[in-house]
Amino acid sequence: MPSEEEIYQEHILDHYEDPFHNGPLLDATHAHHDKNPLCGDVVRIALKLDPAGKIEDCAFEGDGCVISQASASMLLEALCGKTVDEVKAFTAEDMLKLYGPRLTPNRQKCCLLSWRVIQQAVYSPVER
C-alpha cells in the first residue's frame, strides 16, 4: 500500500494545480473523450496534427480526481511535439512510469484514463 506522500508527490500536485495545456484547442484536427465509470473522472484530449503526423499542439479538458487530471497534464507535456507513431509506441506501462508513484489497481485506472483517451484520439479526426 503506497503512502499518501508517495501518491500525492509534490510534482503531481504541481501538475494538478498548474496543468500543462488545460483548456480547449480551437484548431484541433483530432479529439477524443472518455470517462472512468467507477469514479466519474472525465478527460477530453484534443490534438493538432500536422500533415507529417506530428503533434503540433494539444490540450486537455477534464474533471476528476488528482491522479486523473495530473496524469493527463503529465502525458501531454511528455507527448506534445511527438509523432503519432511515438504516441502509439507509448505503452500503459510507460504511462504508469511517467506518473511515478506506485498505485493500487483501482487508482491505476484513474492514471490510465488520459492514456486510453490519447490512444483513441489519434484515430479520431474532428468532423468539420
Binding site: 469514479c39 487508482r107 484513474c110
Partner: peptide, 22 residues
C-alpha cells in the same frame, strides 16, 4: 477540492473507511 476519490484515499490513510463515487 479534491475529488471524492482523493478524499477517500486520504481518509483511508487515517484508518477511516468511507465510500467515494456515485
Amino acid at each position: 477540492r479534491p475529488h471524492a476519490h482523493d478524499i477517500a484515499q486520504l481518509l483511508d490513510r487515517r484508518g477511516i473507511a468511507v465510500r467515494a463515487g456515485h
